[in-house]
Amino acid sequence: MRRLISAVALLLAFGAAAEAAEGAKPPAQHWSFSGIFGTFDRASLQRGFQVYKESCAACHAVNMLFYRDLKGIGYQEDDIKAIAAQAKVMDGPNDAGEMFERAGRPSDKFVRPFANENAARAGNNGALPVDLSMVTKARVGGPDYVYGVLTGYVQTPAGVTLMEGMNYNAYFPGHQIAMPPPLQADGVPYQDGTKATVEQQAKDVVTFLAWASEPTLEARKQMGIKVLLFLIVMTGILYAAKRKVWASVH
C-alpha cells in the first residue's frame, strides 16, 4: 500500500512538471463573482465594458452578446438604446432589394469589428483576434488566465528570440503572442474616479468578459443556494422517515 501511495505521489509530481513546461500558472485573483455567494460588481462591469469598447472592440468581437444583454450589467432601457444606436448595422434587403446601413437596436448582436476571419487576419498581420464572448470559460485557468495574459507583458528574457511582430507574455502558452500590450495606464478615462491602472483595467475587463461568458451566473448561484437549503431540509426529513420505518427491524 505504501508503495502505491508513493507511486501516485510520483505521478502527481510528473503532472506538475509537465504543466510548468507549458507556461507559468497565472496567480489566482480575487473575483467578485467567485464563491457561492458571488455576484458581479456592477461598477466594475460597467468600467470593464468601457475598457472592452475602447481597448478591445477594435479587433475582438463578442459574438454571443446582444445589446439588450447590457441590462445585465446595470444599464437601463434608454441607456441601452443609446449605446446600440452608436453602432452601424447592415440590414436589408429593403423593398428595392438593396442592403442598407441603419443605427443599431437593442435586439441586434454586438457589431463585429471584422466582417469575417480573412478580413480579421488581413488587418492583424495574419493573426486572428479571438472572439471574446466565451473566453473566460474557454481557457484553462479561466478569469485568472485572461487577467494573467493582459498583465503578463514583461521584458523578454535574455536568450529568447521572438518571431517578427510577436510580443513576450509570461502566461500565454509558448510565451509568444501576436497581440501587443492592449492596456496602458490611464488609457481609458474612467468616469467614476477609479484610477485606471493596467491592473485595474484588466480586472474590470475580465469581470466584464466573465459576465459575457455566462450572463446567467448570478441567477444560477442564487437559485443554487435555495435549492441546496431545500435539499438539506428534505434529506433530513427523509433520514428521519427512514429511521422511523426501520425502527422495528433493528
Partner: peptide, 24 residues
C-alpha cells in the same frame, strides 16, 4: 416501505452533491 425509505434518503444525499456541482 423499507428500501423505498432508504433509497429516498440516499437519493436526497445524492441530490445535494449533484446540485452542489450543477449550481456552483
Amino acid at each position: 416501505p423499507y428500501y423505498t425509505a432508504k433509497d429516498a434518503f440516499g437519493a436526497g444525499v445524492f441530490f445535494i452533491a449533484f446540485a452542489g456541482v450543477v449550481f456552483f
